[in-house]
Design a protein around this nucleic acid. Structure first.
Lengths: 215, 215
DNA sequence: TCTAGGATCAGCCGTTCGGCCGAGGCGCAA
DNA sequence: TTGCGCCTCGGCCGAACGGCTGATCCTAGA
């Protein structure tokens, strides 16, 4: 089963470079190599390749718009898109993910990663450049660490209350769901207010969302 | 500059396999290969390798605990830890990230990715298994898409109110910050309640956090 | 054994919330 | 011009919230 790849980049050298790397793989075949986003969308819809390698900076239609057209939310049969770009700006990365990209590669990644990224994308998986990944992981790990600067740790029971409060339950509902009385809930809430320094239940909810206690 | 690697896995075959792969690289050297987490922490502190490859399932101290000890929040000079495991459970992945891991590899990844992951970790970057990455990216892309299913679109002014409510402001404070009267705030809130189908202000706040209106 | 902390409950009381009524001004489009 | 939607404001009222004091029970640790 050969992996059919479409390449879109406005620089001729990059196109042929990628093509040589991929065609050297026994299980890959470059079915199209175009120079702008509009052509990429047209050819991709016609040929339906397994993986589309898209540059971001392209004439007529940039790579993010093209990604939206090929793999964005609402597209009925989305294609696998790997964004390949020189710049690892955060806005590019998140823009690409939101647009529906499967992978995100920097052009300084080396041929090994390019091949691996295409292979991963073809099977519905994702390979992202290590230098980009490290920032993404920081993003994912961050909200959990912000849970540290809690002045005093909440007890398990208090966390139960916090989770329900954060979902919009009233004290009465929290009491019912935890099988305790309204008074008990209010007592726990009092401790939570004191420990978090919150002034009202919404501040408790906001803390819960920020710190990852609920998600 | 050779990359010094520590391997921790309770299975002898896995240890030697990893060691052979890494020692075959001209720029890598395995400085220790241990069978449990406690030894891993001790040896890592003594030898201070550039990268630690840790399995999750290990006797005495599991990989996540070991990661916390070597790279967790609060550690003064954290080491680079790559988690290598058979299972790609979500709880493992997020647990590893929260514990401070730099990378996350599955054992079915192939030698190429292992080498690349070590190289990435050594330079402070992150390489994560493609099958894991695809789920992480979905997590990152998700909150933006969930902003769509709002029953009726809120007006700009209503969004102003929502943002402040979600941060725990009282109606009085919202009024002051928006330079309007308390009555106006309550009117806006009424519209917001109707449009979102919320029953109380915390549900408004929860919607705001989930949909990405505030972050 | 005594003690400290967590979980459970009760009542009181002032404040805030949220629903409901009504009203006026403004800009835009039919 | 006549709507319509949005923003602005006021008052009323019941329900929910949040602070307070005080109490019992249980478990873990000194």
């Amino acid at each position: 089963m050969t992996i059919r790849v479409l390449i879109a980049d406005d620089q001729q050298l990059v196109r042929t470079g990628f093509q040589m790397i991929l065609d050297a793989q026994p299980d890959m075949e470059v079915v199209a190599a175009v120079a702008d986003g509009a052509d990429a969308v047209a050819e991709a819809r016609r040929l339906r390749p397994d993986v589309c390698l898209l540059d971001i900076r392209m004439p007529r239609l940039d790579g993010l718009e093209a990604t939206r057209a090929l793999a964005g939310p609402g597209v009925e049969s989305p294609l696998r898109v790997v964004i390949v770009t020189t710049f690892d700006l955060d806005e590019y990365v998140y823009g690409a993910l939101r647009a529906g990209a499967t992978g995100f590669l920097l052009k300084d990644s080396g041929p090994t990663l390019l091949v691996e990224a295409v292979r991963a994308a073809a099977s519905g998986e994702s390979l992202v450049s290590p230098s980009v990944t490290v920032r993404l992981l920081r993003h994912l790990a961050q909200p959990q660490r912000r849970a540290a600067p809690l002045p005093e740790p909440l007890t398990d029971r208090e966390l139960d209350v916090v989770r329900l409060i954060a979902r919009g339950r009233t004290n009465q509902e929290v009491a019912a769901e935890l099988f305790v009385s309204l008074s008990t809930v209010k007592t726990h809430l009092g401790s939570i207010f004191a420990k978090l320094g919150a002034r009202n239940r919404v501040e408790i909810a906001a803390w819960a969302w920020e710190s990852g206690v609920v998600s």
